[in-house]
Amino acid sequence: MTSVFSLAKMRFVWFLFVGVLLIAQVPSILGSYWTLIALNLMMWVAMTQSWTLFSGMTGYISLGHVVFYGVGAYVVASTFNSIPLWLAVPMGGIAAALLALVVSLPVLRVRGPYFVILTFGLAELVKFSILNLETVSGNSSRLLFGAPSVEILLYCMIGLVVFATLTTLIVTHSRFGRGLTVIREDEVAAATVGVPVLRYKIIAFTVSAIVPGMAGGLMALKSTYFEVLQVFNPIISFTVVTMAIIGGSGDVRGPFLGAVFLVLLSELFWTTAPQFYMILVGLFLILFVIFAPNGIAAFLDKLQISRRSG
């Protein structure tokens, strides 16, 4: 295993380990404001890491990642006080994975623009279906009293980040992961050389839904107030894609870099000038796609190489 893990990746695992320990100290050292920010940051890392597991590897850009988050949140909110949380949150992940599995067969048949728009449309369809369901049953918003503290949610979210990151690391260096990469480069050629294209895509799509499902469940507990339009907001999908692109979607470090970058940027500008912040996000997205399509991660590598040779 170590032979395929490059030195940089091994060092990354150490960084991950130390970083996780540090973030776990945030509640006791920096207080509640920073605990909330740490929770948000970890949520975005988990979401983006799980997105790259499917979309980064196969090159199928999904604009519907929020649907899994929303389904997880919905499961936790609708079973609140009737099912213990340690069971409800994983159930959210399983429900999201089941949804992914059910829709994967028809959805993964289409490619390119059709796939992009279809994932977006499906997420919206699920959103409006659940919204109508909630309105009909008279539950258009739910209050969740007595949810665990933000601190505990943060520890759970850190666990999710570690889980998502290790999954990506293991998949990247497996036969399965290489199969997915070949699908991205040339799907027809992949099928010709014997990669079980459809099965690989379905597995990756399903697995990538587990983490956002559980993250959605945890975040529903954070806000103590559940609203369908909020947890299914398409902005979440777009933010995830932006973070992946800025950080680097083909690299396990990418989601960390992208999420830290955007969360810091939003800390600086969101409260004082939200529109200016959004303009910056748009500008950075464009600049990265044109000049650094492999994100900050690739940029760091380049920096290191030039330093070593210089």
């Binding site: 090159g59 850009i61 390119g112 623009p113 992009v116 777009f238 894609v241 932006t242 692109i245 529109q275 200016f276 959004m278 303009i279 996000v281 748009g282 500008l283 950075f284 997205l285 464009i286 796609v289 044109i290 399509p293």
Partner: peptide
Amino acid sequence: EANSLLLFFGVSVILQNTVAM
């Protein structure tokens, strides 16, 4: 197709927020 989607998303965000500003 994939790149243009991302680029136009950036353009969209910039246009919306510039007008809002």
